[in-house]
């Protein structure tokens, strides 16, 4: 009993000694810049903790921030019905411009916490104003960690949008992956009080490349032999019927046309949509930017209309 009592007394003595010095007003701080996550702890940084809540991190923004309303944001582009191998998904996180102070960190990791697939930020030329700080600089930055993680961070600088592209692994064997989305809506006080932290974990499962149910689409690029071959066989059969039976030929022709159309569509697997998903495949994207070059072509060639635009080939300005 005396041992326990002596321990109690020793603890009390230490606490009292500490309180003599320690009872002063105090304020807790937190990070307004993601760059501080990599700064050593004794310099006020996270020393490698990025607070995304991933399995290799564990903690999120609520380790420090609290007491406020969480950031309300919209996430678009999630492959909610499953990711397809090799497919690039654009994940778009946006919140109200009325939010004055917000910070977001994001990470895509596998069950072990390591980065999976390729996570990247848009190039500068594709950034929208919402993705820039009030100063006009890029808001989001990427961190490649020695531990095998890749973290995207957007600091409190006036931006209200974070876009990222995630290219899924080339094999569904990678298994389920998690999008970690941690955010804080700050009150601008500079400390951790009155801020609203939030963590969203989105589990994304791979879809089966054979039985995937969300992969139907009209074929534009390379085709599969099997559906087209089946369509040809059916067309041949219908034509044969139309040749032998004149009655009801209208119905037969309609059926044949339907089958022709049907044979023109085939399953385009998501990982085959890589090229189709590129911005330059969009018809007339940035048309206003092409006016000058089109005009030069028209002037040089003395013709117009080949690119679908209207105009004259007179050569005048």
């Amino acid at each position: 009993m005396s041992g326990r009592a002596s321990l109690l007394a020793a603890s009390l003595a230490a606490v009292i000694a500490a309180l003599v010095v320690g009872v002063t007003p105090a304020a807790s701080h937190a990070y307004s810049s993601p760059r501080l996550y990599s700064t050593p702890a004794h310099e006020g940084g996270g020393a490698g903790r990025y607070f995304t809540g991933s399995r290799l991190d564990g903690l999120s923004c609520d380790a420090c921030h609290g007491g406020g309303e969480p950031l309300v944001h919209v996430v678009r582009g999630l492959p909610e019905f499953g990711w397809a191998p090799g497919t690039a998904y654009t994940l778009d996180i946006e919140w109200s411009p009325a939010v004055e102070h917000a910070a977001v960190v994001a990470e895509v990791s596998d069950a072990s916490g390591l980065a999976v697939g390729e996570l990247s930020l848009p190039p500068d030329e594709l950034l929208t104003d919402a993705e820039r700080c009030a100063s006009g600089t890029r808001a989001a930055v990427a961190f490649d960690l020695d531990s095998g993680r890749r973290v995207l961070g957007l600091g409190d600088c006036g931006a209200h949008r974070l876009r990222m592209q995630w290219r899924a692994p080339t094999s569904p064997a990678a298994g389920p992956v998690w999008l970690h989305l941690a955010s804080v809506q700050g009150d601008g006080s500079g400390d951790a009080e009155g801020d609203g932290p939030m963590l969203e974990l989105h589990r994304l499962d791979p879809i089966d490349p054979i039985d995937g149910a969300s992969t139907e689409g009209c074929q534009i690029g390379a085709s599969e032999i099997r559906p087209v071959g089946l369509g040809l066989v059916l067309m041949f059969g219908v034509g044969l019927l139309a040749y032998r039976r004149r009655r009801g030929s209208a119905t037969t022709v309609a059926l044949a046309l339907g089958l022709i159309c049907a044979s023109g569509c085939a399953r385009v697997q998501p990982w085959e949509r890589d090229r189709l998903a590129q911005p330059d495949m969009v018809i007339d994207i940035g048309g206003e930017l092409l006016v000058a070059s089109e005009h030069a072509v028209e002037y040089r060639e003395g013709s117009a209309g080949a690119v679908g635009g209207a105009g004259g080939g007179c050569g005048c300005n």
Binding site: P25, H29, Y31, E43, G44, G190
Partner: peptide
Amino acid sequence: PGRLRLEPDIDGPF
């Protein structure tokens, strides 16, 4: 630094 400061009126956050 970066956490609880003992004398926040004197010491900056970092």
